[in-house]
Write a protein that binds this DNA or RNA. Structure first.
Lengths: 335, 335
DNA sequence: ATGAAAGCGCTAACAG
DNA sequence: CTGTTAGCGCTTTCAT
């Protein structure tokens, strides 16, 4: 059996397609009685309006595309959950892709979403992405794009981020107040927004407190756990051993945690540790990790709201805005 | 600017729509030179084939629907990641919905996916779902559905599960060998497959070892962390205090862990703890939790492969199969 | 209040 | 090898 169409309903009632269409969309120009009959048949035969046909005809869909680096990382799955909940309430559906931190795959995902005629796009760029032309192409087609967390400076678009700089500054400042002197920073790729902003916060906190900046204590890597492990090994080989580590995000902090645990280095007695994200795991491990809270679910909701707003306004008043959500330093036992 | 169409390409080259269409799909009946020109123009103007039109015409899409209880739970996000990777390689796209453990929402999600004319559906049912009529309606429309992890006995469909019974049996048997006598089971809802199967394994392990089954030590709840916390409080009020707890999944085990930590009850000295899932967090906390490994990513891949197979075969040979993946008891410090 | 007809972008049968 | 045409399911103008 194939799907029912308005034609089936029309035939059953011996009325025209247009009347059925109107009845289903609650158009005023249709007799109440007829409408009742249409709706009743529709229910009876389990009619599901064909979104493809509707989208083709109306030149717009109720689909939002989402591209994240890794679905499995808690921060992103929480963001997606926030996006989904807003989309659900607005009667939208989400197409979810992961770039696997690969630029090529991100481009292909973008094209696939373009083919699917998404009404809007929500993106956190991959750690390999330096060029954002693929997104600009969609923007030229009037597809609103909202970036979140990992955003690009090279594109005019709405963005949802946290106060990356402040969060980092506060975290490092707190470490300094606690008496730590040789504070290392494990960063992500240099060209990614959050790496840079958080590094700036780190540097400024040191400067402000008249502490020297030691480039040996700044390590660049990726955004995942294994990058954190690797970075710790690198740090432990430096001439000056750090007495504290500030990690660009929680996966990296967890990696550092694992690396330190393997080397039997005590946290915080030998080396203190601060993360960024406030993943649930950070409060479960021992010691519980001090971290900068990023409201992931909220970020997803906000980004989805922004894109829906742009979708509904058309691009009549395209006016890219950046929403900056507040972080909060969660002090726990690792510092 | 709006999206380019084959019409635009045809106009540019002064050829017909069909030729363009053929060229783009690499049809043999088209001059190599013409094809080259078409492809070149297509690239130049960033042509993205309209999936809506294609789907409408061909009466099939390259979209798979996914419904999970909670995107944010690690098990499910890992499954989704597996699904996405298989879908990506097959040139499919995934529409992701979460039921939030609500039956009503699951039904609405199902209808939304039907409207989007998904080629297939991958589902882990909500903990509130007792009736599966909404899925049967789609099956009647020849939409293949593959269930994973939380499946229903009331519907003929392919399923991807783990050896729930064996995993539980082995875990509890191991506890008994270690000398634990009063082993509690924190379960999910009674009518959900995994709750029942894992309970059966638990019961049989006790029976086999001539241990009494104490109904006070079997607590039913939901599948989340907070359910685990609640269950522990309940258990601690029983006449007989358990010396070990077997939890239906890792979120619940983590909840138990939190509850025990709050009460300053030592793991495993006072009460041992075993989970089910092998979420990454289980190896990070202290003590590291003994758990039954479920290959989440693999489950997602397998389910996606199954549904694609059914999509490609048509329903000519509809022959529901259940794939049972192996679990493995991961012994750590909580037992 | 209802119907007829055109068209969204694409494919495929048919004709040449 | 290329073109013409009908039609997928739906909405919407224009008639009536």
């Amino acid at each position: 059996m194939s799907h029912a169409t308005i034609k089936d309903i029309a035939r059953r009632l011996n009325i025209s397609l247009s009347t059925v269409s109107r009845a289903l969309r609650n158009h005023p120009d249709v007799n109440e009685k007829t409408k009742g009959k249409v709706l009743s048949i529709a229910r009876e035969i389990n009619y599901f309006p064909n979104s493809l046909a509707k989208g083709l005809k109306n030149q717009k869909t109720n689909t939002i595309g989402v591209i994240v680096p890794e679905i499995e990382h808690h921060f992103f799955s929480a963001v997606i959950s926030g996006i989904e909940s807003v989309a659900y309430n607005a009667d939208f559906t989400i197409l979810v892709c992961q770039s696997n931190e690969s630029y090529e795959r991100e481009v292909i995902n973008t094209h696939a979403l373009a083919s699917n005629r998404v009404a809007g796009l929500l993106v956190s760029i991959s750690q390999a992405t330096k060029d954002v032309e693929h997104f600009k192409i969609l923007q030229k087609r009037d597809i609103p794009i909202v970036f979140f967390d990992r955003v690009s400076n090279d594109i005019q678009a709405s963005k949802v981020i946290v106060d990356d700089y402040d969060g980092a500054y506060n975290a490092v400042n707190y470490l300094i107040e606690k008496g730590y002197k040789n504070i290392a920073y494990i960063s992500g790729p240099e060209y990614i927004s959050i790496s840079r902003l958080r590094e700036k916060g780190y540097r400024d906190a040191l400067l402000k407190n008249n502490l020297p900046i030691n480039d040996d204590l700044i390590v660049h890597g990726g955004f995942s756990e294994k990058d954190g492990i690797k970075a710790v090994y690198t740090l432990l080989q430096q001439k000056i051993r750090p007495d504290a580590i500030f990690a660009v995000n929680d996966p990296v902090a967890i990696g550092a945690f694992i690396g330190l645990r393997e080397k039997n280095i005590r946290i915080p007695e030998d080396i203190a540790l601060v993360g960024y994200s406030n993943n649930p795991v950070s409060s479960l491990i021992d010691p519980q990790i001090t971290t900068v809270d990023q409201p992931a679910y909220e970020i997803g909701k906000t980004a989805a709201e922004l894109v829906l707003e742009q979708i509904n306004n058309g691009d009549s008043d395209f006016n890219p805005q950046t929403k900056t959500l507040k972080t909060k330093l969660i002090i726990r036992n690792s510092t």
